[in-house]
């Protein structure tokens, strides 16, 4: 499944680029990302956790930067496995940053594979979820670009550290988009669940 888009953020491209490589910022911006640490120059590892309603999605993942042309382009591969759900996820992403007036134009292209039980169960939910995840990420990242890198570890985060020269997020900034979502807003997995419920008793 391929998707991609572009968006502009109110920050210089070098700032934007650095934020992309900053583990705490990305942890805060990626919906559902509850752990993320950089293990060396090119490797990250983390965990995507959602324990909502009746589906438990818990995937340890690793990410590798496979191409870096700072501050213009970064290519990365993320791979995770949820053993209990018998599913794995792989994302191959290419991200480019170009100056655009006072801000930057971010263009990304992703190829997402969802293999196993989750992947077997239809693409509409995945498509829809992808759209949702994209939207949430862009919102959060735009906020991060305004506020700068995230310093404070989020409550469930393990091993997240503020990067050098980090600026504290202003108190008004929400810690992470997922948490800022209204109470009733369903997580993608809850939607997935609801979707299954819907198709059986349509």
């Amino acid at each position: 499944m391929k998707f991609g888009s572009s968006f502009t953020v109110p920050a210089a491209s070098t700032t934007v680029f650095d934020l992309f490589l900053d583990a705490p910022t990305m942890r805060a911006c990626i919906p559902g990302c509850e752990e993320l640490e950089r293990t060396d120059e090119t490797h990250f590892r983390g965990r995507l956790v959602n324990t909502i309603a009746h589906v438990r999605f818990n995937a340890a993942f690793s990410a590798e930067i496979v191409g870096l042309d700072a501050p213009h382009e970064v290519r990365a591969v993320l791979q995770g496995e949820d053993q209990r759900l018998g599913s794995s996820i792989k994302v191959q992403a290419t991200l480019t940053v170009q100056p655009d007036g006072d801000g930057s134009l971010v263009t990304y292209a992703m190829e997402l594979a969802l293999w196993g039980k989750l992947g077997r169960l239809g693409e509409s939910i995945v498509q829809r979820r992808t759209v949702e995840v994209e939207r949430q990420f862009v919102e959060a990242f735009t906020r991060a670009c305004t506020a700068g890198p995230v310093e404070l570890p989020a409550p469930v985060s393990v091993g997240a550290r503020g990067s050098e020269g980090a600026v504290s997020a202003p108190p008004s900034a929400p810690p992470a988009p997922v948490r800022s979502a209204p109470e009733r807003r369903m997580s993608p997995l809850r939607r997935l669940l609801a979707w299954f419920r819907g198709r059986g008793a349509r």
Binding site: M1, A113, G119, R199, G200
Partner: peptide, 15 residues
């Protein structure tokens, strides 16, 4: 049979 990156995406009789 519809595949996405080697994965069957419509492998139930609902789809």
């Amino acid at each position: 049979l519809v595949f996405d990156q080697g994965q069957i995406v419509n492998g139930t009789l609902l789809d």
